[in-house]
Design a protein around this nucleic acid. Structure first.
Lengths: 223, 223
DNA sequence: CCCCGAAGGTTGCAGCAGCATTACGGGCGC
DNA sequence: GCGCCCGTAATGCTGCTGCAACCTTCGGGG
Protein backbone atom coordinates (compact mmCIF):
# COMPACT_ATOMS: atom_id res chain seq x y z
CA UNK A 1 0.00 0.00 0.00
CA UNK A 2 1.18 3.46 -0.84
CA UNK A 3 0.19 6.73 0.80
CA UNK A 4 0.83 10.38 0.17
CA UNK A 5 1.53 12.37 3.31
CA UNK A 6 1.10 16.15 3.10
CA UNK A 7 2.55 17.55 6.29
CA UNK A 8 4.92 20.39 7.11
CA UNK A 9 6.21 19.26 10.50
CA UNK A 10 9.18 17.22 9.53
CA UNK A 11 9.46 15.35 12.82
CA UNK A 12 5.89 14.21 12.79
CA UNK A 13 6.15 13.26 9.16
CA UNK A 14 9.25 11.17 9.72
CA UNK A 15 7.81 9.46 12.77
CA UNK A 16 4.62 8.70 10.89
CA UNK A 17 6.45 7.33 7.88
CA UNK A 18 8.44 5.07 10.12
CA UNK A 19 5.38 3.90 11.99
CA UNK A 20 3.46 3.19 8.80
CA UNK A 21 6.37 1.35 7.27
CA UNK A 22 6.09 -1.12 10.12
CA UNK A 23 2.66 -1.89 8.79
CA UNK A 24 4.14 -2.44 5.35
CA UNK A 25 2.93 0.89 4.03
CA UNK A 26 5.07 2.99 1.74
CA UNK A 27 4.78 6.72 2.23
CA UNK A 28 5.69 9.58 -0.08
CA UNK A 29 6.02 12.83 1.75
CA UNK A 30 5.69 16.44 0.69
CA UNK A 31 5.39 19.69 2.63
CA UNK A 32 3.71 21.74 -0.07
CA UNK A 33 0.30 21.63 -1.65
CA UNK A 34 1.76 22.57 -4.98
CA UNK A 35 3.89 19.44 -5.01
CA UNK A 36 0.98 17.35 -3.82
CA UNK A 37 -1.05 18.13 -6.93
CA UNK A 38 1.83 17.01 -9.08
CA UNK A 39 2.43 13.87 -7.08
CA UNK A 40 -1.16 12.72 -7.32
CA UNK A 41 -0.98 13.14 -11.04
CA UNK A 42 2.13 11.06 -11.22
CA UNK A 43 1.20 8.28 -8.86
CA UNK A 44 -1.73 6.20 -7.86
CA UNK A 45 -2.05 6.36 -4.11
CA UNK A 46 -4.28 4.18 -2.01
CA UNK A 47 -4.96 7.12 0.28
CA UNK A 48 -3.81 10.64 1.10
CA UNK A 49 -3.03 12.00 4.57
CA UNK A 50 -3.50 15.75 4.66
CA UNK A 51 -2.52 18.41 7.19
CA UNK A 52 -4.49 21.66 7.26
CA UNK A 53 -2.02 24.29 8.38
CA UNK A 54 0.54 24.28 5.60
CA UNK A 55 3.08 26.84 4.38
CA UNK A 56 1.11 27.49 1.21
CA UNK A 57 -2.39 27.56 2.63
CA UNK A 58 -5.14 25.51 4.21
CA UNK A 59 -4.77 21.90 3.19
CA UNK A 60 -8.49 21.66 2.68
CA UNK A 61 -8.24 23.65 -0.53
CA UNK A 62 -6.43 20.69 -1.95
CA UNK A 63 -9.39 18.36 -1.83
CA UNK A 64 -11.65 20.05 -4.40
CA UNK A 65 -8.61 20.48 -6.57
CA UNK A 66 -8.00 16.75 -6.38
CA UNK A 67 -11.61 15.80 -7.02
CA UNK A 68 -11.79 18.04 -10.03
CA UNK A 69 -9.13 15.90 -11.67
CA UNK A 70 -11.48 12.95 -11.32
CA UNK A 71 -9.49 11.25 -8.60
CA UNK A 72 -11.49 9.59 -5.87
CA UNK A 73 -8.55 8.53 -3.75
CA UNK A 74 -9.62 8.64 -0.09
CA UNK A 75 -8.32 11.63 1.85
CA UNK A 76 -7.83 11.63 5.61
CA UNK A 77 -7.30 15.01 7.20
CA UNK A 78 -4.84 15.06 10.10
CA UNK A 79 -4.87 18.31 11.99
CA UNK A 80 -4.79 20.16 15.27
CA UNK A 81 -7.77 22.18 14.04
CA UNK A 82 -10.18 19.75 15.50
CA UNK A 83 -13.22 21.80 16.47
CA UNK A 84 -16.52 20.22 15.47
CA UNK A 85 -17.25 22.99 12.99
CA UNK A 86 -13.85 22.54 11.45
CA UNK A 87 -14.50 18.85 11.07
CA UNK A 88 -17.75 19.48 9.30
CA UNK A 89 -15.96 21.87 7.02
CA UNK A 90 -13.38 19.26 6.18
CA UNK A 91 -15.82 16.50 5.44
CA UNK A 92 -18.05 18.83 3.47
CA UNK A 93 -15.35 19.59 0.99
CA UNK A 94 -14.84 15.90 0.35
CA UNK A 95 -12.48 14.47 2.96
CA UNK A 96 -13.24 10.86 3.78
CA UNK A 97 -12.17 11.13 7.38
CA UNK A 98 -10.90 13.71 9.79
CA UNK A 99 -8.52 12.90 12.61
CA UNK A 100 -7.44 15.34 15.34
CA UNK A 101 -3.86 15.64 16.48
CA UNK A 102 -2.46 14.16 18.52
CA UNK A 103 -3.61 10.71 17.57
CA UNK A 104 -2.51 7.13 18.00
CA UNK A 105 -0.99 5.44 15.01
CA UNK A 106 -3.25 2.52 15.67
CA UNK A 107 -6.29 4.70 15.34
CA UNK A 108 -4.98 6.04 12.08
CA UNK A 109 -4.47 2.51 10.84
CA UNK A 110 -7.97 1.57 11.79
CA UNK A 111 -9.41 4.57 10.03
CA UNK A 112 -7.32 3.82 6.99
CA UNK A 113 -8.67 0.33 6.85
CA UNK A 114 -12.19 1.64 7.25
CA UNK A 115 -11.78 4.17 4.49
CA UNK A 116 -10.28 1.65 2.11
CA UNK A 117 -13.04 -0.80 2.75
CA UNK A 118 -15.80 1.47 1.51
CA UNK A 119 -15.82 1.32 -2.26
CA UNK A 120 -14.95 -1.94 -3.92
CA UNK A 121 -11.47 -0.62 -3.47
CA UNK A 122 -8.56 -1.33 -5.71
CA UNK A 123 -6.99 -3.08 -2.76
CA UNK A 124 -9.02 -6.23 -3.11
CA UNK A 125 -10.29 -7.91 0.01
CA UNK A 126 -8.72 -11.35 0.08
CA UNK A 127 -6.90 -13.32 -2.54
CA UNK A 128 -6.85 -17.09 -2.50
CA UNK A 129 -4.05 -18.87 -4.30
CA UNK A 130 -2.85 -22.42 -3.72
CA UNK A 131 -3.27 -23.13 -0.03
CA UNK A 132 -2.73 -19.48 0.82
CA UNK A 133 -5.01 -16.61 1.68
CA UNK A 134 -3.50 -13.20 1.17
CA UNK A 135 -5.01 -10.03 2.58
CA UNK A 136 -3.38 -7.04 0.93
CA UNK A 137 -5.22 -4.65 3.21
CA UNK A 138 -3.97 -6.05 6.49
CA UNK A 139 -0.86 -7.40 4.83
CA UNK A 140 -1.41 -10.76 6.37
CA UNK A 141 -0.91 -14.18 4.89
CA UNK A 142 -2.21 -17.54 5.99
CA UNK A 143 -1.63 -21.10 4.85
CA UNK A 144 -4.54 -23.42 5.57
CA UNK A 145 -5.91 -20.67 7.83
CA UNK A 146 -2.72 -20.70 9.89
CA UNK A 147 -1.02 -17.30 9.95
CA UNK A 148 2.20 -17.21 8.00
CA UNK A 149 4.71 -14.53 8.90
CA UNK A 150 6.95 -13.01 6.28
CA UNK A 151 9.53 -10.23 6.36
CA UNK A 152 8.13 -6.94 5.15
CA UNK A 153 9.79 -6.77 1.76
CA UNK A 154 8.95 -10.34 0.89
CA UNK A 155 5.39 -9.65 1.95
CA UNK A 156 5.22 -6.71 -0.44
CA UNK A 157 6.56 -8.80 -3.28
CA UNK A 158 4.05 -11.54 -2.56
CA UNK A 159 1.03 -9.27 -2.38
CA UNK A 160 2.04 -7.44 -5.54
CA UNK A 161 2.24 -10.77 -7.34
CA UNK A 162 -0.97 -12.02 -5.75
CA UNK A 163 -2.93 -8.98 -6.93
CA UNK A 164 -2.24 -10.09 -10.46
CA UNK A 165 -1.97 -13.79 -9.82
CA UNK A 166 -1.53 -15.98 -12.86
CA UNK A 167 -0.47 -12.91 -14.81
CA UNK A 168 2.98 -11.56 -15.45
CA UNK A 169 4.03 -8.62 -13.35
CA UNK A 170 6.73 -6.49 -14.92
CA UNK A 171 9.92 -6.28 -12.99
CA UNK A 172 9.54 -2.50 -12.83
CA UNK A 173 6.07 -2.85 -11.33
CA UNK A 174 7.45 -5.03 -8.61
CA UNK A 175 10.18 -2.56 -7.86
CA UNK A 176 7.61 0.19 -7.51
CA UNK A 177 5.57 -1.97 -5.18
CA UNK A 178 8.45 -2.67 -2.85
CA UNK A 179 10.43 0.54 -2.89
CA UNK A 180 9.48 4.17 -2.86
CA UNK A 181 11.30 7.13 -4.24
CA UNK A 182 13.85 7.85 -1.59
CA UNK A 183 15.07 4.28 -1.46
CA UNK A 184 16.35 3.59 -4.93
CA UNK A 185 18.35 0.41 -5.18
CA UNK A 186 21.26 -0.46 -7.36
CA UNK A 187 21.76 -4.13 -6.82
CA UNK A 188 19.77 -7.27 -7.26
CA UNK A 189 18.00 -6.77 -3.95
CA UNK A 190 14.68 -7.64 -5.55
CA UNK A 191 16.08 -10.90 -6.88
CA UNK A 192 17.36 -11.70 -3.44
CA UNK A 193 13.93 -11.14 -1.92
CA UNK A 194 12.31 -13.33 -4.50
CA UNK A 195 14.81 -16.05 -3.88
CA UNK A 196 14.23 -15.93 -0.14
CA UNK A 197 10.48 -15.78 -0.63
CA UNK A 198 10.59 -18.86 -2.83
CA UNK A 199 12.48 -20.80 -0.24
CA UNK A 200 9.99 -19.87 2.44
CA UNK A 201 7.01 -20.75 0.26
CA UNK A 202 8.57 -24.08 -0.52
CA UNK A 203 9.40 -24.91 3.07
CA UNK A 204 5.87 -24.04 4.11
CA UNK A 205 4.26 -26.05 1.33
CA UNK A 206 2.22 -23.07 0.26
CA UNK A 207 1.08 -24.67 -2.97
CA UNK A 208 2.22 -21.71 -5.03
CA UNK A 209 5.33 -20.92 -7.01
CA UNK A 210 6.95 -17.76 -8.33
CA UNK A 211 7.84 -18.13 -11.98
CA UNK A 212 10.17 -15.97 -13.96
CA UNK A 213 9.60 -14.83 -17.50
CA UNK A 214 13.01 -14.00 -18.72
CA UNK A 215 13.37 -10.38 -19.75
CA UNK A 216 9.82 -9.53 -18.76
CA UNK A 217 8.93 -10.17 -15.14
CA UNK A 218 7.49 -12.66 -12.68
CA UNK A 219 4.19 -14.35 -12.03
CA UNK A 220 2.57 -16.21 -9.18
CA UNK A 221 1.05 -19.55 -10.05
CA UNK A 222 -0.53 -22.46 -8.24
CA UNK A 223 1.53 -25.58 -8.34
CA UNK B 1 5.47 0.90 -27.06
CA UNK B 2 7.97 3.03 -28.94
CA UNK B 3 9.34 6.44 -28.07
CA UNK B 4 11.52 8.99 -29.80
CA UNK B 5 14.03 10.59 -27.50
CA UNK B 6 15.55 13.88 -28.65
CA UNK B 7 18.37 14.61 -26.24
CA UNK B 8 21.99 15.67 -26.62
CA UNK B 9 23.43 14.37 -23.37
CA UNK B 10 24.51 10.90 -24.27
CA UNK B 11 24.74 9.63 -20.73
CA UNK B 12 21.25 10.70 -19.80
CA UNK B 13 19.90 9.32 -23.04
CA UNK B 14 21.51 5.95 -22.49
CA UNK B 15 20.37 5.71 -18.90
CA UNK B 16 16.86 6.65 -19.90
CA UNK B 17 16.73 4.13 -22.71
CA UNK B 18 17.82 1.43 -20.36
CA UNK B 19 15.28 2.41 -17.73
CA UNK B 20 12.46 2.55 -20.24
CA UNK B 21 13.38 -0.79 -21.71
CA UNK B 22 12.68 -2.30 -18.31
CA UNK B 23 9.12 -1.17 -18.83
CA UNK B 24 9.06 -2.85 -22.20
CA UNK B 25 9.47 0.40 -24.06
CA UNK B 26 11.67 0.73 -27.12
CA UNK B 27 13.45 4.02 -27.54
CA UNK B 28 14.92 5.59 -30.64
CA UNK B 29 17.43 8.28 -29.88
CA UNK B 30 18.67 11.26 -31.82
CA UNK B 31 20.67 14.32 -30.83
CA UNK B 32 19.57 16.62 -33.63
CA UNK B 33 16.29 18.26 -34.47
CA UNK B 34 16.95 17.82 -38.16
CA UNK B 35 17.06 14.05 -37.74
CA UNK B 36 14.00 14.10 -35.54
CA UNK B 37 11.82 15.48 -38.32
CA UNK B 38 12.91 12.69 -40.61
CA UNK B 39 12.39 10.04 -37.97
CA UNK B 40 8.84 11.08 -37.22
CA UNK B 41 8.07 10.89 -40.90
CA UNK B 42 9.44 7.37 -41.17
CA UNK B 43 8.05 5.96 -37.95
CA UNK B 44 4.96 6.06 -35.83
CA UNK B 45 5.87 6.79 -32.24
CA UNK B 46 3.62 6.50 -29.24
CA UNK B 47 5.21 9.57 -27.70
CA UNK B 48 8.17 11.91 -28.09
CA UNK B 49 10.54 13.01 -25.33
CA UNK B 50 12.11 16.35 -26.17
CA UNK B 51 15.00 18.27 -24.67
CA UNK B 52 15.08 22.05 -25.10
CA UNK B 53 18.76 22.92 -25.23
CA UNK B 54 19.99 21.14 -28.32
CA UNK B 55 23.00 21.63 -30.61
CA UNK B 56 20.81 22.93 -33.42
CA UNK B 57 18.45 25.11 -31.44
CA UNK B 58 15.66 25.20 -28.91
CA UNK B 59 13.78 21.92 -28.97
CA UNK B 60 10.51 23.78 -28.67
CA UNK B 61 10.76 24.87 -32.29
CA UNK B 62 10.27 21.23 -33.20
CA UNK B 63 6.75 21.05 -31.86
CA UNK B 64 5.03 23.42 -34.33
CA UNK B 65 7.00 21.76 -37.09
CA UNK B 66 5.67 18.40 -36.01
CA UNK B 67 2.09 19.59 -35.63
CA UNK B 68 2.14 21.17 -39.07
CA UNK B 69 2.68 17.70 -40.54
CA UNK B 70 -0.59 16.66 -38.91
CA UNK B 71 0.99 14.46 -36.29
CA UNK B 72 -0.63 14.53 -32.88
CA UNK B 73 1.83 12.26 -31.16
CA UNK B 74 2.12 13.39 -27.54
CA UNK B 75 5.27 15.35 -26.74
CA UNK B 76 6.78 15.52 -23.28
CA UNK B 77 9.42 18.19 -22.81
CA UNK B 78 12.31 17.16 -20.56
CA UNK B 79 14.50 20.05 -19.64
CA UNK B 80 16.52 21.91 -17.05
CA UNK B 81 14.77 25.08 -18.21
CA UNK B 82 12.04 24.70 -15.67
CA UNK B 83 10.96 28.22 -14.74
CA UNK B 84 7.19 28.73 -14.58
CA UNK B 85 7.27 31.06 -17.57
CA UNK B 86 9.25 28.53 -19.56
CA UNK B 87 6.69 25.87 -18.71
CA UNK B 88 3.90 28.07 -19.98
CA UNK B 89 5.89 28.68 -23.12
CA UNK B 90 6.35 24.95 -23.70
CA UNK B 91 2.74 24.04 -23.12
CA UNK B 92 1.56 26.93 -25.25
CA UNK B 93 3.40 25.72 -28.33
CA UNK B 94 1.74 22.34 -28.04
CA UNK B 95 3.70 20.18 -25.64
CA UNK B 96 1.50 17.73 -23.79
CA UNK B 97 3.56 17.80 -20.63
CA UNK B 98 6.62 19.51 -19.26
CA UNK B 99 9.02 17.83 -16.87
CA UNK B 100 11.97 19.55 -15.20
CA UNK B 101 15.36 17.89 -14.92
CA UNK B 102 16.37 16.15 -12.88
CA UNK B 103 13.40 13.85 -12.66
CA UNK B 104 12.64 10.35 -11.47
CA UNK B 105 12.02 7.73 -14.07
CA UNK B 106 8.89 6.72 -12.22
CA UNK B 107 7.57 10.21 -12.63
CA UNK B 108 8.24 10.12 -16.32
CA UNK B 109 6.45 6.81 -16.56
CA UNK B 110 3.46 8.18 -14.71
CA UNK B 111 3.29 11.18 -16.99
CA UNK B 112 3.64 8.95 -20.01
CA UNK B 113 0.73 6.88 -18.82
CA UNK B 114 -1.27 10.03 -18.19
CA UNK B 115 -0.54 11.41 -21.63
CA UNK B 116 -1.32 8.14 -23.38
CA UNK B 117 -4.53 7.75 -21.44
CA UNK B 118 -6.12 10.83 -22.94
CA UNK B 119 -7.51 9.52 -26.18
CA UNK B 120 -8.56 5.88 -26.04
CA UNK B 121 -4.98 5.05 -26.83
CA UNK B 122 -4.04 2.33 -29.22
CA UNK B 123 -1.69 0.95 -26.64
CA UNK B 124 -4.40 0.01 -24.18
CA UNK B 125 -7.07 -2.65 -24.17
CA UNK B 126 -6.76 -6.38 -24.42
CA UNK B 127 -6.84 -8.20 -27.70
CA UNK B 128 -8.65 -11.49 -28.16
CA UNK B 129 -7.65 -13.77 -31.01
CA UNK B 130 -8.25 -17.49 -31.32
CA UNK B 131 -8.07 -18.90 -27.84
CA UNK B 132 -5.61 -16.22 -26.77
CA UNK B 133 -5.89 -13.00 -24.82
CA UNK B 134 -3.07 -10.56 -25.39
CA UNK B 135 -2.42 -7.57 -23.17
CA UNK B 136 0.07 -5.30 -24.93
CA UNK B 137 0.25 -2.98 -21.96
CA UNK B 138 1.31 -5.56 -19.43
CA UNK B 139 3.03 -7.66 -22.04
CA UNK B 140 1.17 -10.74 -20.94
CA UNK B 141 -0.47 -13.50 -22.94
CA UNK B 142 -2.94 -16.16 -21.90
CA UNK B 143 -4.49 -19.16 -23.65
CA UNK B 144 -7.88 -20.13 -22.26
CA UNK B 145 -7.12 -17.81 -19.35
CA UNK B 146 -3.99 -19.78 -18.53
CA UNK B 147 -0.87 -17.65 -18.65
CA UNK B 148 1.39 -18.38 -21.56
CA UNK B 149 5.05 -17.54 -21.23
CA UNK B 150 7.03 -16.27 -24.17
CA UNK B 151 10.55 -14.94 -24.56
CA UNK B 152 10.71 -11.19 -24.85
CA UNK B 153 11.35 -10.91 -28.57
CA UNK B 154 8.68 -13.40 -29.53
CA UNK B 155 6.31 -11.58 -27.23
CA UNK B 156 7.00 -8.32 -29.06
CA UNK B 157 6.42 -9.96 -32.42
CA UNK B 158 3.15 -11.44 -31.24
CA UNK B 159 1.78 -8.23 -29.75
CA UNK B 160 2.73 -6.27 -32.84
CA UNK B 161 0.83 -8.76 -34.99
CA UNK B 162 -2.09 -8.86 -32.59
CA UNK B 163 -2.53 -5.11 -32.64
CA UNK B 164 -3.36 -5.42 -36.32
CA UNK B 165 -4.81 -8.91 -36.27
CA UNK B 166 -6.22 -10.19 -39.52
CA UNK B 167 -4.30 -7.48 -41.31
CA UNK B 168 -0.89 -7.62 -42.87
CA UNK B 169 1.92 -6.08 -40.92
CA UNK B 170 4.86 -4.94 -42.98
CA UNK B 171 8.08 -6.71 -42.32
CA UNK B 172 9.69 -3.37 -41.57
CA UNK B 173 6.97 -2.55 -39.07
CA UNK B 174 7.67 -5.78 -37.29
CA UNK B 175 11.36 -5.09 -37.22
CA UNK B 176 10.62 -1.69 -35.75
CA UNK B 177 8.43 -3.27 -33.11
CA UNK B 178 11.09 -5.68 -31.98
CA UNK B 179 14.32 -3.78 -32.42
CA UNK B 180 15.38 -0.22 -31.92
CA UNK B 181 18.09 1.60 -33.72
CA UNK B 182 21.08 0.74 -31.66
CA UNK B 183 20.41 -2.93 -32.14
CA UNK B 184 20.31 -3.21 -35.89
CA UNK B 185 20.36 -6.75 -37.17
CA UNK B 186 21.91 -8.15 -40.28
CA UNK B 187 20.61 -11.65 -40.40
CA UNK B 188 17.23 -13.30 -40.54
CA UNK B 189 16.82 -13.02 -36.80
CA UNK B 190 13.23 -11.89 -37.24
CA UNK B 191 12.42 -14.93 -39.34
CA UNK B 192 13.96 -17.07 -36.67
CA UNK B 193 11.74 -15.54 -34.02
CA UNK B 194 8.67 -16.04 -36.13
CA UNK B 195 9.61 -19.63 -36.69
CA UNK B 196 10.10 -20.25 -33.00
CA UNK B 197 6.90 -18.39 -32.18
CA UNK B 198 4.93 -20.51 -34.64
CA UNK B 199 6.22 -23.68 -33.08
CA UNK B 200 5.24 -22.51 -29.64
CA UNK B 201 1.76 -21.44 -30.75
CA UNK B 202 1.24 -24.78 -32.43
CA UNK B 203 2.40 -26.80 -29.44
CA UNK B 204 0.13 -24.79 -27.18
CA UNK B 205 -2.89 -25.08 -29.46
CA UNK B 206 -3.38 -21.35 -29.42
CA UNK B 207 -5.91 -21.36 -32.22
CA UNK B 208 -4.00 -18.78 -34.18
CA UNK B 209 -1.49 -18.91 -36.98
CA UNK B 210 1.10 -16.54 -38.37
CA UNK B 211 0.76 -16.27 -42.13
CA UNK B 212 3.29 -14.86 -44.52
CA UNK B 213 2.53 -12.58 -47.40
CA UNK B 214 5.44 -13.02 -49.65
CA UNK B 215 7.45 -9.88 -50.18
CA UNK B 216 5.20 -7.82 -47.93
CA UNK B 217 4.90 -9.01 -44.38
CA UNK B 218 2.99 -11.20 -41.97
CA UNK B 219 -0.44 -11.42 -40.46
CA UNK B 220 -2.02 -13.09 -37.48
CA UNK B 221 -5.18 -15.06 -38.15
CA UNK B 222 -7.48 -17.39 -36.28
CA UNK B 223 -7.33 -20.94 -37.49
C1' DC C 1 5.38 -28.02 -67.16
C1' DC C 2 9.61 -27.62 -65.35
C1' DC C 3 13.50 -24.78 -63.98
C1' DC C 4 15.47 -21.34 -61.37
C1' DG C 5 16.06 -17.43 -58.50
C1' DA C 6 14.35 -15.19 -54.66
C1' DA C 7 11.87 -15.13 -50.36
C1' DG C 8 10.87 -17.47 -46.48
C1' DG C 9 11.48 -21.49 -42.96
C1' DT C 10 14.14 -24.28 -39.86
C1' DT C 11 17.70 -25.50 -36.83
C1' DG C 12 22.37 -26.09 -34.40
C1' DC C 13 25.58 -23.34 -32.20
C1' DA C 14 28.12 -20.03 -29.44
C1' DG C 15 27.93 -15.95 -26.67
C1' DC C 16 26.07 -13.62 -23.20
C1' DA C 17 22.44 -11.15 -20.65
C1' DG C 18 19.54 -12.06 -17.07
C1' DC C 19 18.39 -14.74 -13.23
C1' DA C 20 19.17 -17.73 -8.87
C1' DT C 21 21.51 -18.58 -5.04
C1' DT C 22 24.26 -17.75 -1.14
C1' DA C 23 27.45 -15.73 2.06
C1' DC C 24 28.59 -11.56 4.34
C1' DG C 25 28.09 -7.50 7.08
C1' DG C 26 25.64 -3.43 8.62
C1' DG C 27 21.66 -1.99 11.06
C1' DC C 28 17.67 -2.02 13.70
C1' DG C 29 14.64 -3.77 17.17
C1' DC C 30 13.83 -6.41 21.14
C1' DG D 1 24.04 -8.20 22.48
C1' DC D 2 21.44 -11.35 19.93
C1' DG D 3 18.74 -12.27 16.07
C1' DC D 4 16.44 -11.05 12.03
C1' DC D 5 16.06 -8.29 8.05
C1' DC D 6 17.99 -6.44 4.14
C1' DG D 7 21.25 -4.58 0.64
C1' DT D 8 25.38 -5.95 -1.68
C1' DA D 9 28.26 -8.65 -4.48
C1' DA D 10 30.39 -12.91 -6.20
C1' DT D 11 29.43 -17.03 -8.47
C1' DG D 12 27.31 -20.31 -11.40
C1' DC D 13 23.88 -21.42 -14.60
C1' DT D 14 20.07 -21.26 -17.91
C1' DG D 15 18.07 -20.38 -22.02
C1' DC D 16 17.25 -16.46 -25.13
C1' DT D 17 19.08 -14.59 -29.18
C1' DG D 18 21.75 -13.44 -33.24
C1' DC D 19 23.91 -15.78 -36.73
C1' DA D 20 24.64 -18.68 -40.56
C1' DA D 21 24.08 -22.75 -43.09
C1' DC D 22 20.88 -25.30 -45.27
C1' DC D 23 16.25 -26.52 -46.79
C1' DT D 24 11.52 -25.47 -48.60
C1' DT D 25 8.13 -22.88 -51.02
C1' DC D 26 6.62 -19.73 -54.36
C1' DG D 27 5.95 -17.74 -58.78
C1' DG D 28 7.33 -16.31 -63.31
C1' DG D 29 9.28 -17.35 -67.81
C1' DG D 30 11.07 -20.29 -71.17
Amino acid sequence: MRLLLIEDERELADALSRALSKHGILTDHTMHLADAVELTRQNVYDAILLDRRLPDGDGLTFIPQLRRTGTDTPVIVLTARNEPLERVEGLDVGADDYLGKPFLVEELMARLRAVLRRPASLAERQIAVGRMMIDPLHLSVAIDAIPFDLPRRELLVLTALAKRKEKTVLRSTLEAAVYNYEEEIQSNALDAHISRLRKRLLDAGAGVAVHNIRGVGYLLKEE
